[in-house]
C-alpha cells in the first residue's frame, strides 16, 4: 500500500535520510524505531508531503506522491499525527475534530467518524466544548489522534504519540491504536517506548543515521542482540 524507495532528504547541507526503503501493507501495524536525530520525523513529514525528497520516491497504491500537495495526500487516505500534537489550541475539541473532516471524502463520513472517535476516547465526548489548550497532554493527544481519524484514513502515521504524557494515558493511547487497527486502518508508528511499540506492532524498522539498520517481524526484533542492547538496555528490561 505505502512504498518508500531509496528516499534521500536533506535539511540544507545536512543529510537526514540516506536511501531509506520500506513498506506498510494494508491492515498492518508497523513500528519505526531509532534514536533521536535518526530521521524518523523527517521520514514521516516527507511521506505526508511537507518535505520534498532529493531522491527516491514515495508511492501510495502505486501513485507517486512526490508531486501531490499535502492536503491531497490526506484526501487519498494517508493521515498523520505530528510530533507535539500541533492542535488548534484556541478552538474547542469538537472544532478540532470537525476540521479533521474538512476534505470532501472525510466530510461525507463525518458523523460516523465522530461517533467512532468518541467511542475510542469517551473522555473527549464529555469535553467536546472545552478549549483544547485547557486539556492535559494526554487528552490533547487523544484529540490529535481523533482529528487524524476524522480524515477517514486507511493509513495512520503517528510521530511519538506518548511523548510528554502521563504513563496512565500512554496505555490508553497505544491501546486505541490496536482498536483503530482492528477497524481496518494500517498504523505506522514512530515511538520512543520500544518495548511497548514492539508489543503492538506486527513488523518494525530500526532507523539509524538516516538508514534502515534492521527490520523484521516485531517478535524477532525483540530478540535481536543489537536492538536489545541499543534500545532495551543491557538486561532487556
Amino acid at each position: 500500500m505505502l512504498e518508500v524507495q531509496g528516499l534521500e532528504v536533506a535539511h540544507g547541507d545536512v543529510r537526514a535520510l540516506d536511501g531509506v526503503s520500506l513498506t506498510v501493507g494494508a491492515g498492518e501495524i508497523v513500528a519505526l524505531l531509532g534514536p533521536n536525530g535518526a530521521g524518523k520525523s523527517t521520514l514521516l513529514l516527507t511521506i505526508a508531503g511537507l518535505l520534498r525528497p532529493r531522491a527516491g520516491r514515495v508511492t501510495w497504491d502505486g501513485e507517486d506522491l512526490r508531486r501531490v500537495s499535502p492536503h491531497l495526500v490526506v484526501e487519498r487516505g494517508l493521515a498523520m499525527v505530528p510530533e507535539g500534537r500541533r492542535l488548534f489550541g484556541s478552538m474547542t475539541v469538537e472544532e478540532n475534530l470537525a476540521l479533521g473532516a474538512f476534505a470532501p471524502r472525510a466530510r461525507a463520513a463525518r458523523e460516523r467518524s465522530l461517533e467512532r472517535v468518541y467511542a475510542l476516547f469517551p473522555a473527549l465526548r464529555e469535553r467536546r466544548r472545552q478549549v483544547v489548550r485547557s486539556l492535559s497532554g494526554g487528552q490533547q493527544q487523544m484529540v490529535a489522534v481523533g482529528r487524524a481519524m476524522m480524515t477517514n484514513p486507511r493509513l495512520l502515521m503517528l510521530d511519538e504519540p506518548s511523548l510528554g504524557i502521563a504513563p496512565r494515558l500512554v496505555d490508553a493511547i497505544l491501546d486505541s491504536l490496536v482498536d483503530i487497527n482492528r477497524g481496518g486502518v494500517a498504523v505506522f508508528l514512530v515511538e520512543q517506548n520500544v518495548r511497548a511499540a514492539l508489543a503492538l506492532a506486527h513488523r518494525a524498522y530500526v532507523l539509524e543515521q538516516g538508514r534502515i539498520a534492521a527490520h523484521g517481524p516485531a517478535a524477532d526484533l525483540l530478540e535481536d542482540p543489537h536492538v536489545r542492547q541499543a534500545y532495551l538496555g543491557p538486561f532487556g528490561r
Binding site: S69, H71, V74, F88, G89, F102, A103, A106
Partner: peptide, 13 residues
Amino acid sequence: EDWQAALLTGIDV
C-alpha cells in the same frame, strides 16, 4: 494558527 497542521488535516491552505 498552524498552517502545517492545517495541511495535515486536509485543508487546502
